[in-house]
């Protein structure tokens, strides 16, 4: 198998006295699709936020493409990463949020163009072309000049995905991207994710409560329980055949709701 593009090595995270993650070890390989499931509060969001540099681990290492994300070498010693170091390392990572977080003062097209132009200093015309292409791909080819407030939740989330894709990340993180949506809008968003998963070769980590969906697209499923990954394997191993009791209870409760 290829070298992992991301490695978590014994990563711990506490908020104050509360230990949220207790020793996470995880490899993410290029193009791998990973689904993270688990009860509310088990730390799923925190795992991916640390990789996006939105939350700093309390201890342990996260290695991205061979470089330590949160630590850097300075005169022979490993010290806390600077903003500059974080920017260099996180460039290949993108994220889609539960509440979209579109920029409300920009049109849909500008939402997708701002970062490639200002962050990657790419040519404006090329970026426009790519942004247009992405928006068409997510089915919003007629909305370029709309503002986020004029869109439905499902449309907003599709814009958020286009915005992340225009940056051409090697790793995409999805944090329960359908759970703030009205039920009838969930399908259109899942369709887009499915399309990305099938046709793009980036690694994806999806925190999700959509079990059937996870079963369908994930190469690997992780069950997170009270800050520990207690089960991992292929979707059918974890979701259909595991004998782990807490996982069974979780799945059971879940399917009933």
């Amino acid at each position: 198998m290829t070298e992992p593009i991301v490695q978590y090595r014994d990563v711990h995270k506490s908020f104050g006295d509360v230990k949220v993650l207790k020793g996470i070890n995880l490899d993410i390989h290029p193009a791998e699709k990973i689904a993270v499931i688990g009860p509310s509060g088990s730390g799923k969001t925190t795992i991916i936020r640390m990789l996006m540099t939105l939350e700093e681990p309390t201890s342990g290492d996260i290695i991205v493409d061979g470089t330590n994300l949160w630590k850097m070498e300075k005169s022979g010693k490993m010290v806390r990463a600077s903003e500059k170091h974080l920017r260099e390392v996180r460039g290949d990572i993108g994220m889609v949020f539960q509440h979209f977080n579109l920029f409300p003062h920009m049109t849909i097209l500008d939402n997708c163009m701002a970062a490639p132009i200002h962050v990657k200093k790419e040519n404006k015309e090329e970026v426009r072309e790519r942004a247009v292409q992405m928006l068409e791909r997510v089915g919003l080819g007629d909305k370029f000049d709309s503002y986020p407030s004029q869109l439905s939740g499902g449309q907003k989330q599709r814009v958020a995905m286009a915005r992340a894709l225009v940056m051409r990340p090697k790793i995409m993180l999805f944090d329960e991207v359908t759970s703030a949506l009205d039920p009838e809008l969930v399908g259109e968003v899942l369709e887009v994710i499915r399309d990305i998963a099938k046709n793009d070769d980036m690694a994806m980590v999806l925190v999700t409560h959509e079990m059937d969906f996870a079963l369908d697209i994930a190469d690997k499923v992780l069950f997170l329980d009270e800050g520990v990954i207690t089960e991992q394997g292929t979707a059918s191993e974890v979701i259909e055949h595991s004998t782990n009791e807490r996982l069974q209870t979780f799945l059971h409760r879940f399917r009933k709701v």
């Binding site: 996006m52 903003e83 962050v119 992340a164």
Partner: peptide, 10 residues
């Protein structure tokens, strides 16, 4: 957070 995810500087 969205801006960080797009790798914008401070």
């Amino acid at each position: 957070e969205a801006a960080v995810a797009l790798n914008m500087s401070r």
